[in-house]
Design a protein around this nucleic acid. Structure first.
Lengths: 153, 153
DNA sequence: TATTGACCTCAAGTTAAGTTGAGGTTTTAT
DNA sequence: ATAAAACCTCAACTTAACTTGAGGTCAATA
């Protein structure tokens, strides 16, 4: 029986260990925590201790990011389950399916764009009226300042 | 014969007209010019006047952006031709082909990712050792601060 | 002629996703 | 008991691609 830990529960990990094992920087973990993506408890000395499951959380976050989901949305998705909960296989399946659909949509858009581009390489007009490339149709929501996220309108 | 214009050349346009016809904000045109993507001449009164071809330039820029090419690269690509030059059909073909290939590569990466995700939805392990999702293989170049461009490693 | 609308410059703000650094506290190893 | 390694907080910086705003000039119109 360890001291800071009720019987049976796996031991809590300090941030350095999480960083090493997950492959992300300590500062990133701080950042994720500040954004509510992961949680920790504190020692008497105010140092963070993480349940091992956060390694899984970080893995999930990274995968979601690779598919192009912004952190904010990832947080919302994770929020659906109690913070720091076990994140079961079923839950992962749900999340991953949503993200896959999202990714699929993105791929479709890009593929359509590529086809249009191919067409247009033949014609070369870029005419405002005729060219499909010039009439995005959907995806015309570029408002406000800030970095433009490439493809995800 | 107009005054500011040698015989035969099409008349130069003020920035407001370019903005209206191209669909981008005046501030954006300023910005593109400051980044060397387009050029203008000035009137005696220091106002910008654009050759009509910049409408085409802006069109090209927008298309390239849609395919995910960053402005910096777009500028480099355009730099290969004399600034403000006619941008012939052949030149457009060359640029567009490059960008299409780039886009193609991106699509392939995303497709691979989607397939891996599909696999992983079945297994749900996210194991550091086994899971293909956890071993990006390529694309591990995330260094330094600044916005992470989603997909384009 | 006077106004209004279009322009100009330059500095500063915005977003996302983090990083860097200063100044100070805790833990761990010797 | 120290010293070194690991942590902590908080503010400021970074990139990309723009936007906003202040303070001032130019040009077309009534």
């Amino acid at each position: 029986m360890t001291k800071e830990n009720p019987a049976g529960a796996p031991p809590l990990l300090p941030i350095g260990v999480i960083a090493r094992r997950s492959g992300v920087a300590v500062s990133t973990i701080h950042f994720y925590e500040s954004r509510g993506l992961i949680t920790s408890v504190r020692t008497e000395g105010n140092q963070r201790r993480y349940a091992p499951v956060v390694l899984r959380y970080i893995a999930v976050i990274k995968v979601a990011q690779r598919t192009g989901i912004p952190l904010e949305e990832i947080r919302e998705a994770l929020r659906r389950y109690p913070p720091g909960s076990k994140l079961s296989a079923a839950q992962w399946k749900t999340l991953a399916s949503e993200w896959r659909d999202d990714l699929d949509e993105r791929i479709k858009r890009l593929t359509r764009l590529r086809d249009e581009l191919n067409q247009c390489i033949g014609c070369g007009c870029l005419s405002l009226e005729d060219c499909p490339l010039r009439n995005p149709g959907d995806s015309l929501g570029s408002k406000g300042p800030g970095a433009r996220i490439l493809e995800r309108p």
